[in-house]
Design a binder for these strands. Structure first.
Lengths: 145, 145
DNA sequence: CTCCTAGATCGTAATTATTCCGATCTAATT
DNA sequence: AATTAGATCGGAATAATTACGATCTAGGAG
């Protein structure tokens, strides 16, 4: 998904395109990974120093409601946001030391279908699946803080 | 696991048994489900009104380090704690409306083994898998707030 | 192009969750 | 019963998120 595609989509949805929102989208569309609200704020402020947290959060939640952004709550209580590039979710391999993540190719669908059968009364809407550990660089450094 | 078993185990680990800690354990051992720090505080205060958040958090993290308690970060940023009854993790079916959860019998092991093969350089330590949706009672009420 | 207005932004203050800190207390060993 | 390392209390500090009033502006109407 390019910036222009995204802006067009927002326009058809009747959402105002402000410079701040464009900048937030640029950040999210830059590297295909998750960002914390603070990271996004810092990056946007390089261009628009006056932008506030309020704007970042409101924009992120707006994009989330529109399905363009997904919110993730990783272990340790860290809330992260990621652009929903493919309209198809994926999971993450997360390093507990440096916080970097990689996308995973697999999704526990057999578990899901099994649970659906076992709990037909429960209306499943979503699921989370994240794998935690230490990446190559951070191995052996876990205990160093 | 009973309270006495747990206290014995703590004793052998050289951990001081205080009345506050006993009360926190009683809460965790009561219903087999997850609790927020605040829930635990409220329950403990019924017996010891002076107990502080500090004590609750410190005790929970102590128990976590000892492997007796697991910490969960559910979507929405809610941190929860649960007694680790079986020394073997499990996953949850979580209602997004009432917050109640059920334990799940299945665990996405095939995914895990596949990822281990695909990323041999990554030292996996743990994973999360939670399914979200609406329980029977809360279906149709999702939008009512 | 200019005007108008709903909605967006800013700066700051409020709220919430969690952690820290100094003074005091106590479980458990001696 | 005395001792002391470690635990608790109460409140203050910190961090993350949300709310609010005043001001500004994107985008449609004229």
């Amino acid at each position: 998904m390019t910036l222009n595609d995204t802006l067009l989509r927002l326009k058809t949805l009747g959402v105002k395109i402000t410079p701040q929102r464009q900048e937030i989208l640029k950040v999210l569309l830059g590297e295909e990974r998750y960002y914390s609200a603070e990271e996004i704020l810092k990056k946007v402020q390089e261009r628009y120093p006056a932008v506030s947290f309020d704007t970042v959060y409101r924009t992120l939640y707006l994009l989330k409601r529109l399905g363009l952004v997904v919110e993730l709550n990783f272990q340790g209580g860290h809330r992260r946001f990621e652009f929903n590039h493919e309209d198809k979710h994926h999971h993450h391999l997360v390093c507990l030391k440096c916080g970097k993540s990689q996308k995973l190719s697999c999704c526990p669908t057999d578990c899901l279908t099994r649970i659906k059968k076992e709990h037909p009364e429960f209306a499943i809407t979503s699921h989370s699946f994240e794998i935690y550990g230490y990446c190559r660089k951070c191995q052996g450094l876990e205990s160093l803080g």
